[in-house]
Design a protein around this nucleic acid. Structure first.
Lengths: 170, 170
DNA sequence: AACGAATAATTGACACTTGAAGTAACTCGC
DNA sequence: GCGAGTTACTTCAAGTGTCAATTATTCGTT
């Protein structure tokens, strides 16, 4: 596990992934890099807060978030799908959380290949504390946007997501 | 380096980071997770294409992209800023690219602490081939969106980026 | 000129991620 | 019931990423 203390210094905001753009680039590329820049900023902010306030990481938080709403736990493969990462990855993250007593692997009597992963009581407790703060961070980051702007963004991104799904489905 | 061949199988599109959302979540959190889902899809698409078509990776591509527009090369620290990653990271990626003869470290006579990193001729050639394709991939992914929608998104994300910069600047 | 502080880059420890290869368990058709 | 193919999970190597500590150099003050 990493350290408890983090400086929270963010990268210089004046120069970033988007700064490279010039007029000769196409709109789509500019859009993509701007989206990437926003996402990276938010993500790195959340990572640093999780590290500083809870000594944990985004993947761990993400895994616990998936489990929190699954009353009967999730299979490793379900976790892998929902987190959009490979199975080998889930194994490692689950190992870590299990070692700290935050989740457990339970054997599925119906199919002995399967593990059902569940939050422990302690895991529940910890996750709820983190989730509450996490929500406040996100709300804070989007605070400058009006309700209308946020709704527009949700709409447009929903549209984008549909198109991308088609494009990347082969 | 990983293998040349990639299956290009993307994660099942039916279940992803956003699927966890329910009505009781706040708009900002929903917005954030939707943005993250879009970005992750695009990023993983681009990664897989870079791997499959050029046997390279996104960080390498990113580093070369920074250098391409810098006639006199960039210092390691400048690369670090523009790529929004730490210095130690840049050292490693540069090592790899240098070993493959795509970039060179040149000593700065004015300040002997500094390396100026430049693309080699071979690096230039390779990058230009990759960049051309990369642009087509991105254009393809955003193809379903109208010009108006794309412009709206660029605008809204620009707004968001400004707000985030303020929030995360401490 | 010499000292201390600041800066540039590297290194090492650790975490996350992927893709490929391996093991165990299940399913289906015969 | 048995063999082939599939599925669930783990393991491994290589790359990416962070932070903290180290080394080398430069700058600013005295």
């Amino acid at each position: 596990m990493p350290k408890d203390k983090t400086t929270l210094k963010l990268v210089e905001p004046h120069v970033d992934a988007e700064t490279r753009i010039h007029d000769d680039h196409h709109l789509s590329v500019r859009l993509w890099l701007r989206m990437l820049a926003c996402t990276n900023r938010i993500e790195s902010f959340v990572r640093q807060r999780l590290q500083a306030n809870f000594a944990t990481t985004l993947p761990r938080f993400d895994l616990m978030a998936q489990l929190e709403r699954a009353a009967h736990g999730l299979k490793m493969s379900e976790l892998s799908q929902r987190m959009m990462v490979t199975g080998g990855n889930v194994t490692g993250i689950t190992d870590g959380l299990e070692k700290e007593g935050l989740v457990v692997r339970e054997i599925d009597p119906a199919d002995r290949r399967v593990f059902r992963v569940r939050l422990t009581a302690e895991g529940q407790r910890q996750f709820r504390r983190m989730a509450a703060e996490h929500e406040q961070w996100v709300i804070g980051l989007f605070e400058g946007m009006s309700l209308k702007q946020k709704n527009q963004l949700v709409e447009l991104l929903g549209e984008l997501k549909r198109h991308i799904s088609r494009e990347t489905a082969e």
